[in-house]
Nucleic acid binder design. Structure first.
Length: 115
DNA sequence: ACATTGACTAATT
DNA sequence: TAATTAGCCAATG
């Protein structure tokens, strides 16, 4: 886990707009894409993204990163919900999780890129 | 080197 | 929806 990987993850998280969210898995894929695109070996997965955020603490909008169920880390659930309500993030009926179908965001694909 | 742990995920029940 | 299980990858003891 070097600085380059940390920076990649943190930059991506910082790029997520308010009121939107990404999943750990998606973030991991984006990181992998970028590494491969720049000719570097792919590494890490969703759990590594989690590791980075856990280490980062504050300083990044961590509440915009949720698991595949739209939930934040249990320990920070209350704080996350407060942020979501403040940003107007689409939530499911009970307000405890992000509505992924409408809230998920990802970087604009580059022109010419396949897919 | 082996075991355990963790801000994960997908499939099963 | 919730609880379980198995798979995953890297860090830590």
């Amino acid at each position: 886990m070097d600085e380059e990987y940390l920076g990649l993850v943190l930059d991506l998280v910082a790029a997520v707009p308010p009121g939107r969210a990404v999943t750990y898995g998606l973030l991991a894929e984006l990181v992998t894409e970028e590494l491969v695109r720049t000719g570097r070996p792919a590494r890490g997965g969703p759990r590594q993204v989690g590791q980075v955020l856990a280490r980062a603490g504050g300083g990044v909008p961590w509440w915009r990163v949720v698991n595949a169920s739209g939930r934040p880390p249990a320990r920070w659930a209350v704080t996350a919900v407060e942020h979501w309500r403040q940003e107007g993030t689409p939530l499911v009926r009970d307000g405890s999780r992000v509505q992924l179908a409408t809230a998920v965001w990802w970087p604009h694909p580059e022109p010419g890129a396949s897919g």
